[in-house]
Design a protein around this nucleic acid. Structure first.
Lengths: 337, 337
DNA sequence: TTGTATGCGTTATCAT
DNA sequence: ATGATAACGCATACAA
């Protein structure tokens, strides 16, 4: 019953031209007389013809799709990037194919294979358990753009945050408010976290502020890890007046721990995060945070793969600047007599 | 330089068998002698052969992909569902193709076309601006499973939340704590919101509680809308001791408004949300909420399309039960002398 | 400018 | 149980 979809051949027949002519019109790959073009276009309209992507791909054309490798598709952080990617790709008639590895190497490899089976024209790696040499190997087969690994490997094209600068911004803000004893909730073993930490350290030494190693606790980039790290921090005999969480999600967890301890933000403790997730404007109090333009990164990554796929060489590294969004979670430390 | 991917033909040649035999082994579509099977499998291993999906699709096989139509891929709510969908699909070697319409009908149609071009084997509609009759038309062309439209149209297969029951649960909880003047932050014009509201109303009449229309403000299912609705509520001369927000995101916004007004949760006002988003365990205070097993819904939707695609008829409606997660944002109203 | 012929990698229909 | 062959819908090299 269901009449099968019209094919290019049908359109050609109905238009009284050859299939190649229709193909040419579709892909704008050669000149076609206006009259023929007009009728073909009309027939396409009438029949509702849409090229079969499988056939097009098989015949050597592009698959019109870009793979996106990530850990968790449902993460507020990657969500931002994904939106940027989607917008750019869609505007060029490309589609994003997502593959989440959930931090499991086996699964990630499996999903990556799935992407390759689908003849993707390029790959954006938002985060991955893959090692550099594996990514390099991949990059020899198709355009690959990484995010968050800037400066780590010059053989790979990457779009980075200015994590170093962001770290400096964070510490600078607190220092200028007058904080001297500053605790940090570090992230997992991850290039982004490392560079943010480095930025904080550099700024510390420039301002002659002492970063007490005892006041650095490691989290997992999630709420729970931030909560637990904050609890451990609070347990220590050491005093501190401000806390930097290396991402907003951990800051959320820290907020809860602080509140349960009866501490006021920013009255007792100032708190600062990274990423400026959409939700951060609505925490209580609204969170001061380092804004990494994540969705711009996504957009840049997308236009970069597209450019590479079209044969344009790319400069290997690009990065976007961080900025600070000052809200209500940071203030001067209270001076106790 | 880049040696092109090994094909089924190559594998056949190297194994000394015909292409058909290799295909049979791959798809388990006929008996093949163990000896041949063994060598073919070995060659596949050695060459790293992976079937080309475009070819497979073109040749009449399945595309091994299910389209997922949604408004915003980066939304904590849909994120949950998407995870459920992905897990089920991946386990069956299927892939989800996402298309976000961002609430724009034109864009949504455009993205839907993109999905059709890709020969999807089925479609899951998480949310859509499409009307029922359009969805019915679609459902005639391929398996379609909806979420959140249960009971609205019997011709369509759908997986629904028990919004009605959830609404009852919410009001029941507050009623039993002793609340009588209850405000509601309603959602946009949306079946889910409507049913939640209905559930609240039904429970109200059973408990002889009066739901003051003045205390119902409409939000947009986002933090900002919740914030604004709460501000409007606070502006009214009417008194209330509890607020139900029809989803967690609006509850987050309400929390901020309440805090800015100097009101304590739950000391002054109890607050309750819907959805039990991952973040809700980490708000200050942690949010009491109606848990809709969103990711189970996703999983059910996925297995349902798969079943339909395999030719099994489906009962038209399924739904999963709601439950209440009591945390710290609700308590008995304070009795003022 | 336009048409013809061939091939892309796989499945499916026949044979054997 | 296995192989030969056609077909899927399109792009492209080659002819005209």
């Amino acid at each position: 019953m269901s009449k099968k979809r019209p094919s290019l051949g049908l359109v050609a027949e109905l238009s009284g031209v050859s299939p190649s002519t229709v193909s040419r019109i579709l892909n704008n790959t050669a000149k076609v007389s206006d009259s023929k073009k007009k009728t073909v276009l009309r027939v396409i309209e009438e029949t509702g013809f849409r090229p079969n992507l499988a056939a097009r791909t098989l015949a050597g054309g592009r698959a019109m799709s870009i793979g996106v490798l990530t850990q968790y598709i449902d993460s507020p952080f990657y969500g931002e990037a994904i939106r940027g990617i989607e917008e750019v790709l869609a505007s060029e008639d490309y589609t994003a194919l997502f593959a989440s590895g959930r931090g499991d190497r086996e699964l990630e490899l499996e999903r990556l294979n799935m992407l390759m089976e689908r003849n993707i024209d390029g790959l954006i790696v938002l985060s991955s358990t893959l090692e550099d040499h594996e990514l390099e190997a991949l990059a020899k087969e198709l355009p690959v753009v990484l995010t968050g690994r800037a400066t780590l490997n010059q053989k790979l094209t990457s779009i980075g945050f200015d994590n170093l600068g962001g770290g400096g911004l964070a510490l600078g803000h607190l220092a200028e408010l007058g904080h001297e004893a500053i605790a940090v909730i570090d992230g997992p073993d991850d290039p982004d976290a490392k560079l943010r930490m480095d930025g904080i350290r550099v700024e510390c030494s420039q301002r002659r502020i002492d970063l007490d190693p005892e006041l650095i606790e490691v989290g997992d980039f999630n709420e729970l890890g931030g909560y637990q790290a904050m609890v451990r921090l609070l347990d220590k005999p050491k005093d501190f007046s401000a806390v930097i969480a290396l991402n907003d999600q951990m800051a959320y967890g820290a907020m809860l721990a602080l509140s349960e301890a009866g501490l006021d933000i920013p009255g007792d403790i100032s708190l600062l995060g990274f990423d400026d997730l959409p939700h951060s404007a609505y925490t209580v109090p609204p969170l001061t945070t380092i804004s990494q333009p994540v969705n711009r990164i996504g957009a840049m990554a997308a236009s970069t793969v597209l450019a590479m796929s079209a044969g344009f060489a790319q400069t290997s590294d690009q990065s976007v600047a961080a900025s600070i969004v000052v809200r209500k979670s940071t203030d001067s430390p209270k001076t106790h007599g």
